[in-house]
């Protein structure tokens, strides 16, 4: 099987300072990978470098495109990369306002990607928006409300619907449950798990919450000072951590 994403020796520098470096891994279709580490460990830099929001200094990010097979997205043309960002890729921001148009209705937010790829049938766009509102458990009657009238958890679910409506194959998530109440978090986690399974999504989730990755991620990558210090099965890394830093990280989690 061809990996959906192959990252090879990816590095991003901020001047002389390391953002992230020497990152390599393969992600296969349907796999969910977690990236954990403390603030400043380079996990968000890595995510943004992979998703094309930052330009890496070295390395390749090879995506298995539908049309042409594996292509390095770092060197591909900007229009092609942006097109990928609207179709096969999705990016869920930690703060919903970074990923939503706050002055546009919920339906318009979901419909934008459809219109961006050429859907010109209002009835069809609206029906799909309504369907996705249902799938992320937002009442259809809220379709014409603006996200500013939504709670934090609803905004985050709307952001997910907006991202998944075009049926992407790879989702980047930056702390998707950060800043939410635990009850809202649980609901979102359940939703994400079901969507991942139903749609066969591959996902890369950056978080500092080990409980989140235990429930969502198949595999784990632990980062410290811009480098990957440990990788493996999520439960193996968490239950039998090999690296000193991972052991410290796991043992530092507060027990409820």
């Amino acid at each position: 099987m061809t990996p959906l994403l192959q990252v090879k020796n990816l590095a991003k520098m901020y001047g002389a300072r390391i953002g992230c470096t020497d990152v390599s891994f393969d992600l296969y279709p349907g796999e969910v990978m977690g990236i954990v580490g403390e603030s400043g460990s380079g996990k968000s830099t890595l995510l943004n470098s992979m998703a094309g929001h930052l330009t890496p200094d070295r390395g390749e990010v090879i995506f298995d495109t539908r049309a042409d097979g594996p292509v390095d997205t770092v060197t591909m043309s900007e229009p092609a990369r942006r097109m990928l960002g609207r179709t096969d890729w999705a990016f869920v921001h930690q703060h919903a306002r970074d990923g939503l148009r706050m002055s546009v209705s919920a339906g318009g937010n979901i419909g934008e990607r459809l219109m961006a790829v050429g859907d010109r049938n209002y009835g069809n766009i609206r029906a799909r928006a309504a369907d996705w509102l249902g799938r992320v458990e937002i009442a259809e009657s809220r379709i014409d409300d603006r996200p500013s009238a939504f709670s934090g958890g609803m905004q985050q679910r709307l952001q997910i619907a907006r991202n998944l409506v075009t049926g992407p194959r790879l989702v980047f998530m930056d702390e998707p449950t950060g800043g939410l109440d635990v009850s809202v978090q649980a609901r979102l986690l359940d939703l994400l798990r079901n969507l991942v399974r139903e749609m066969g999504l591959s996902a890369i989730i950056v978080t500092h919450d080990l409980a989140v990755v235990r429930l969502l991620a198949d595999r784990l990558m632990v980062m410290k000072d811009g480098r990957v210090v440990e990788t493996g099965l999520t439960d193996q890394v968490l239950d039998d951590p090999q690296h000193a830093y991972t052991q410290l990280l796991v043992s530092s989690v507060l027990q409820v």
Partner: peptide, 19 residues
């Protein structure tokens, strides 16, 4: 038992089959 909070028992048990 380690499960996602909020998921109904029936779905917890059915999950390995869905997988």
């Amino acid at each position: 038992l380690r499960v996602v909070p909020r998921v109904p028992t029936l779905d917890v048990v059915a999950e390995p089959l869905l997988a």
